[in-house]
Simulated assay, not measured.
Amino acid sequence: MLVLLPPSEGKAASGRGAPLKPEGLSLPGLAGARATVLDELVELCAADEEKAREVLGLSEGLRGEIAKNAGLRTAGARPAGEIYTGVLYDALDLASLDAAAKKRAARSLLVFSGLWGAVRVTDRIPSYRCSMGVKLPGIGALGSYWKAPMAEVLPEAAGDGLVLDLRSAAYAAAWKPKGELAERTAGVRVLHAPTRKVVSHFNKATKGRIVRSLLQSGAAPAGPAELVDALRRLGYTVEVEEPAKPGRAWNLDVLVDEIH
Rank of each mutant, 00 (worst) to 15 (best):
Leu215Phe: 08
Asp48Pro: 10
Leu4Cys: 03
Thr36Met: 08
Ala193Cys: 00
Arg129Met: 12
Ser213Val: 07
His260Gln: 12
Leu30Pro: 10
Ile139Gly: 05
Leu255Gln: 06
Ala205Arg: 15
Ala141Phe: 12
Val42Arg: 10
Asn69Leu: 09
Ala249Asp: 14
Ile66Cys: 09
Val190Phe: 03
Asp165Cys: 04
Ala31Cys: 07
Pro221Ala: 10
Asp93Arg: 09
Val199Leu: 13
Met150Lys: 04
Ser96Val: 12
Pro137Val: 05
Lys197Ile: 03
Tyr171Leu: 01
Arg167Tyr: 10
Gly114Phe: 07
Glu241Gln: 13
Tyr145Met: 02
Ala18Cys: 09
Leu2Ser: 02
Val111Glu: 03
Ser26Pro: 01
Pro243Gln: 10
Ala91Glu: 12
Pro246Val: 13
Glu241Thr: 15
Ala13Leu: 08
Arg212Met: 01
Gly223Val: 04
Ser213Asn: 00
Leu44Tyr: 00
Leu58His: 11
Pro149Tyr: 11
Tyr236His: 14
Ile139Arg: 00
Gln216Ser: 14
Leu72Glu: 01
Leu20Tyr: 09
Lys102Asp: 03
Ile139Leu: 15
Gly140Arg: 04
Ala33Trp: 02
Ala157Gly: 08
Ala170Gln: 07
Leu92Glu: 03
Arg73Lys: 14
Ala67Tyr: 04
Met150Tyr: 05
Thr85Ala: 15
Gly29Ala: 11
Ala35Leu: 10
Arg120Lys: 13
Pro194Cys: 04
Ala13Ser: 12
Asn69Gly: 12
Gly71Val: 00
Arg196Tyr: 10
Ala222Thr: 11
Lys207Pro: 09
Arg232Cys: 00
Gly247Asn: 08
Asp48Ala: 08
Leu166Asp: 03
Pro22Arg: 01
Glu49Asn: 02
Ala101Trp: 12
Glu242Pro: 09
Ala13His: 06
Phe202Gly: 02
Gly247Cys: 04
Cys45Val: 05
Leu231Asn: 05
Asp123Ile: 06
Glu239Phe: 04
Cys130Ile: 04
Asp123Asn: 05
Leu109Gly: 01
Lys103Arg: 15
Pro224Ile: 10
Pro221Glu: 10
Ala77Ile: 06
Ala101Ser: 14
Asp39Phe: 01
Asp123Arg: 06
Asp123Met: 05
Asp90Cys: 00
Ala100Asp: 11
Ile259Glu: 15
Ser144Ala: 12
Leu252Ala: 13
Gly29Met: 04
Ser168His: 00
Thr122Ser: 10
Glu40Asp: 01
Leu94Gln: 02
Ala31Gln: 14
Arg212Thr: 00
Ser217Asp: 08
Arg78Phe: 09
Arg107Val: 00
Ala80Glu: 06
